[in-house]
Nucleic acid binder design. Structure first.
Lengths: 328, 328
DNA sequence: CTGAAAGCGCTTACAG
DNA sequence: CTGAAAGCGCTTACAG
């Protein structure tokens, strides 16, 4: 069954494709009512589906966004993706996604891939060392919004949270009983969001003995064990994890080593995880406003695309500290 | 900065767009070496990016798949999506995704949306009452693969697991100590995967007093509490959850009611969840072969698209029961 | 009120 | 070895 095109309808009705196009796209009514009726009827009968590709070629718009996240299988990004999907749909946009695995190279490839597919705009969780990609997009005048992280040296649309503030507040609460040795496990990553989380930790632990371990994203499982062991050796009494992935990996090691939380070690994490609720000692975490993040990103992107804004905007959303009373 | 097209290169080099097209797409070398060189050089210099939309219009291929899952923010589907993304990329395909929320109506809308965008094929986790959508795709001759569930009355490409077998094995283990009252919490859903899970449960509990509660997907939080209360009232000693989402929701209620697992109630679940590892009593679950599911789906879809297979294939993959020794 | 024609950016069969 | 031309399925300015 071949796809039916405007031409098929035009032939059947006995008018030009132009007329059909006008009617079906509801342009100013330059067409007689009876012709209109007939065209609509036949279109329905043949189950006409406009070819969006042809439309796109003509209009230069694809009504498609490219979404580049670090890893779609990470719950944080999967949840963001869901919000973005729903918001995009409200504007009749579809979303093509890709995972960068925090690799600038993969991110480059994705951007080119998606650009060739003529996406109307990007929402990007940028990786380390992807500055030239951002400059490229700027030069190409392609609308985009950076999410979760950004590069302070560039003027771009950014949607982020107050990483410093959230980390500071959470860690302050974590160490309020004045544990003397405190630790943080972070990613080996120079991006602003990580730096800010670390800065928040440091600011909140000025009077403590601090230990910071940095793990590389590509080798979490191998490196986290050593990191935890170092923490234990240093008699760390309170431990802050920079992301949920790190916290989960860390918890597994701690569990294996039969460290009692919070008796032997207090802990808190950035980002949430379903697992935190079910741990024998509920774990405090920083809740990111995922819905708000996604909505804001799409809203910025839409105004960029429709040129309803001039200049770029950075939105900093608040994050919430969810404190859990440790049972026992 | 306008996008550069074949024409721009052609003009700059002083040849026709046809020649440029031939060179850049590496067609049989009908072009002189020196011209070739020059064209490649200029293309690079101008950073030529082929317009995939124009290519698609000509070729009728978009190198894009449509992926329709129940909910991309559900870890099971997010993980599947990741595998599918990677596999698709190996064939130079991109993935557009959409979430149906188990609603046939949303699924319809997504299919039309994606069809208009001329996706080359679909991977679909079908919803209840979506039979006509499947028939529609068949009639349109659009390549597609059903994932996770399927309709036995249709001859389609299906990639599923042995739901009956996995449920039977797991429940058999769960009730081996001959608890007399056993329960299952499932979705109110007539799809084959759910039926098969229930059938597995029933087959394994022939000699028990059985209680089955069915929850509607759209109102889990409201209905799960009553369901659990009914189970407790019926003095159920072992409880099987049909999915991880149900298990997590159920666990929350059980925790709230301070029911001790497994002392007061033994439990097991279909699908995994990070939370299961961290619960004070590690929870047994059925692990789906997610990587294999995604790979198989793409592989089937690719052979359908390339017409390297005639007829349709149903792949049934094995699932694994992960048993956890309950710590006390 | 309606049609013929050009054009979006490619590819490719055809002609030279 | 290379160019002119048609065509993929639309839209829209132009002409009648």
């Amino acid at each position: 069954m071949k796809k039916v095109s405007l031409k098929d309808i035009a032939q059947k009705v006995g008018v030009s494709t132009a007329t059909v196009s006008y009617v079906l796209s509801n342009k100013k009514c330059r067409v007689g009512e009876s012709t209109k009726q007939k065209i609509r009827e036949i279109a329905k009968e043949l189950n006409y589906q406009p070819n969006q590709i042809a439309k796109s070629l003509k209009s230069g718009k694809t009504f498609t966004f490219g979404l580049i996240v670090a890893d779609i299988s990470n719950p944080f990004f999967a949840n963001i993706a869901r919000v973005i999907e729903d918001e995009a749909a409200k504007h009749d946009y579809t979303v093509i996604f890709g995972s960068s695995d925090e690799s600038a190279q993969k991110s480059w490839k994705l951007i080119q891939f998606l650009q060739n597919r003529q996406v109307d705009g990007f929402i990007i969780v940028p990786t380390e060392n992807s500055e030239e990609q951002i400059e490229y997009l700027q030069k190409q005048n392609i609308p985009f919004v950076l999410l979760d992280r950004y590069f302070p040296q560039f003027t771009t649309n950014n949607v982020v949270i107050n990483n410093y503030g959230a980390a500071f507040t959470m860690v302050s609460k974590l160490v309020q009983n004045r544990e003397s040795n405190v630790g943080m496990i972070a990613y080996k990553n120079s991006l602003i969001h990580m730096k800010e989380r670390i800065r928040g930790f440091e600011e909140a632990t000025k009077k403590h003995h601090r230990f910071i371990e940095k793990i590389s994203f590509a080798a979490i499982d191998q490196e986290i064990e050593t990191a935890i062991e170092n923490m234990l050796e240093n008699k760390v009494e309170a431990l802050f994890f920079a992301t949920n992935t790190l916290a989960i990996a860390g918890l597994k090691v701690l569990q294996q080593k039969q460290i009692k939380i919070p008796n032997q070690l207090k802990m808190a994490s950035f980002d949430e995880s379903e697992a935190f609720d079910f741990f024998y000692s509920p774990i405090s975490f920083i809740e990111q406003p995922i819905k708000n993040l996604g909505e804001t990103a799409i809203s910025l992107l839409m105004s960029e695309i429709n040129s309803t804004q001039t200049g770029k905007t950075t939105k900093v959303l608040p994050a919430k500290c969810i404190e859990r009373a440790s049972s026992k």
